[in-house]
Design a protein around this nucleic acid. Structure first.
Lengths: 367, 367
DNA sequence: CTGTTAGCGCGTTCAC
DNA sequence: GTGAACGCGCTAACAG
């Protein structure tokens, strides 16, 4: 009497099912795998045996011989961040319909981590990659080009990489910013602060210097800054270097940057924050300065969410289609995997400016 | 001259490396796989060849023969939800340190989807499963017990399953609720509304009826309700069925439920919302009723987040350790996979009541 | 220390 | 319509 207690009976293989059904393994494989043709009677025998033994196909072995894993690799900065979580949800939903799964890795905006994430995923033989890259320029993105060159399709999401032409799904960063700032200008504002400017050692003094710095920022950040400058330019408003933060990208530093602006002899009458944390930082700074919005200062934030609507007064926000961003990226990638190749495509989704109550004219503003 | 343009050279195998290095495949495998022992000179030859050919180990094949995928399956209600996104981030971080990866699936609180997710993951031969189950009781969780029975370790996160003893990582739901409500009571409140009560056809009229309904709710929801009732009981406050919502679990219905309470002849002087969406719904209802907090009604919400601190007045909230929840779950699971088995353990993490400014005495309240 | 050989479980020719 | 045999790339046990 063998006492193999706690030794879980390893899952039945297809050969075991074949034996139990009294047929050859190939026949069993055909009926269970749903390919080739099998006699009705044989099919029944096999299916009965499979059911009885509780057969489940081993996807690993299947992938081994078919060469496809039905799995996509997803590389983002931080899966805990609501924005990326939304994008991933979009990817995940679309994948479900097409029979794919995803394995997600976070990089914390660290290119080295991104590089090893991509490598790992390729070694796992994912069928394709969706990455929101931290790479600023082509030369730091060799891991991406290597992947596509060696046959792993890649689509970039949320951020393009300067100097690289790949399938990409983006939002209209520049226009979103331009429109938001134009909205402020249309309300009469001319001194408009920009929160989440490029992080620089010494504060940039000229527009060209600022644009150069933007070139070394993440794609989305750079684009939004350009949109801000474009809006000013279009209205003939002179750029003031004091009205752009150059602090590190986190809530506390954003708050510090805004606090500095608010302490200016001639402070801004409106603020445009280009990230969720920038928005919260700005809100904190406004309160700490003893000011109120929109009374003392108007405010537009980025990344709309339910809280922006319940806060008092409700915030005017730029809303990004996170789910759709992910969905489209997955769609584009899977189509390419399926061989429906097309020229490399860039998909640009629109944001929406949700007007609530944080913007008024500058009339009441201090000074 | 063969024109195999665009046919990406398939990744070099270990045999090719072996041949290129002039050694047997096993030797190459040993040096590249980092096991067994190899002569210094041979090792160099192999490594050089591997580097030259750009060899990368095929994890699929490796998993095939080792029987482990170094991959964990994660099943949650919605990866797009900030709470689960945080938990997943915690899992992901811990996994990275132990050399594991995760594939994440969302179920939308649908047990059928959960069942097939678990099945799929097992077919992919994940080494273990972390699941925030939608199953209320043991009988609807056979997919979980089947998994552990057949040798796939499982740890439950955020929710236990009634009648099932598995490794679990939870927060102190009942205490969190009890303390929050006690906090309200200590400020003098006696009519305290509970938002996110069990969804029932006909409103429950007695405590026992309510408790019965709680038994058919998600673990966390049921526990929080029990904590609420316990706090009332401890202070000798009589339960009023009118003060518990029985609406479906979403923001709009929560708002509707609160609106009903606020329209009561003798409305509550305080509210306890046990979910992020419940909190937002409550906030909306309060505003729509033309009331203000904490002046007209005190409020404690659940799932602290940055916005709760910038909203005006800042909200007193229960804060959950999302990252740690995920971390501990991953730790427990990987330890079990590594064979450091122990008796089934239940890990309960503490929440924190973050006091801000949404709670005062009921003195000013209507009535 | 090294090379040979046998699987892992499944898909896929190829004869029967 | 059916079954035998081979290959995917790697690890592992066994000789040498």
């Amino acid at each position: 009497m063998t006492t193999n207690r706690h030794v879980p009976a390893s899952a039945p293989t297809i050969s075991e099912v074949a034996k139990a059904a009294g047929v050859g393994r190939a026949t069993a494989a055909r009926t269970l795998g749903g390919y080739g043709s099998v006699g009705a009677e044989t099919r029944n025998k096999v299916e009965a045996a499979a059911l009885r033994l509780g057969y489940q196909t081993n996807e690993l072995a299947r992938s081994m011989s078919t060469g496809e894993t039905k799995t996509l690799g997803v590389v983002v900065a931080d899966i805990g961040n609501p924005f990326f979580a939304g994008v991933v949800r979009g990817i995940s939903d679309y994948c479900e319909n097409r029979g794919y799964n995803i394995v997600v890795l976070s990089t914390d905006e660290n290119v080295a981590k991104e590089r090893s994430a991509v490598e790992l995923l390729r070694n796992k033989r994912v069928d394709g990659l969706i990455v929101a890259s931290a790479a600023i320029k082509a030369q730091s993105a060799d891991h991406i080009s290597a992947a596509v060159k060696r046959g792993t399709p890649v689509v970039l999401v949320d951020r393009a990489i300067r100097g690289l032409d790949f399938d990409t799904v983006l939002i209209d960063n520049r226009d979103a910013a331009r429109l938001a700032v134009a909205h402020l200008i249309s309300h009469g504002h001319r001194r408009i602060g920009f929160v989440w400017g490029p992080e620089t050692a010494s504060p940039p003094v000229s527009v060209s210097e600022l644009l150069a710095a933007a070139e070394n920022a993440l794609w989305s950040d750079g684009e939004r800054l350009q949109g801000y400058l474009a809006a000013l330019f279009e209205s003939g408003i002179e750029f003031d270097a004091d009205l752009v933060t150059t602090t590190p990208k986190n809530r506390e530093d954003a708050e510090r940057g805004v606090a500095r602006m608010l302490a200016l002899p001639c402070r801004p009458t409106a603020l445009f924050a280009t990230e969720a944390d920038a928005t919260i930082g700005a809100l904190n700074a406004i309160r700490r300065a003893g000011l109120g919005y929109p009374r003392d200062i108007s405010l537009i934030g980025f990344d709309d969410n339910p809280w922006a609507g319940v806060i008092d007064p409700p915030l005017t926000m730029v809303s990004q289609p996170m789910l759709e961003l992910g969905q489209r990226a997955a769609e584009q990638l899977i189509n390419r995997i399926d061989g429906n190749r097309a020229e490399h495509s860039v998909d640009v989704l629109s944001t929406v400016l949700i007007e609530r109550s944080s913007v008024t004219g500058p009339l009441n503003a201090g000074e």
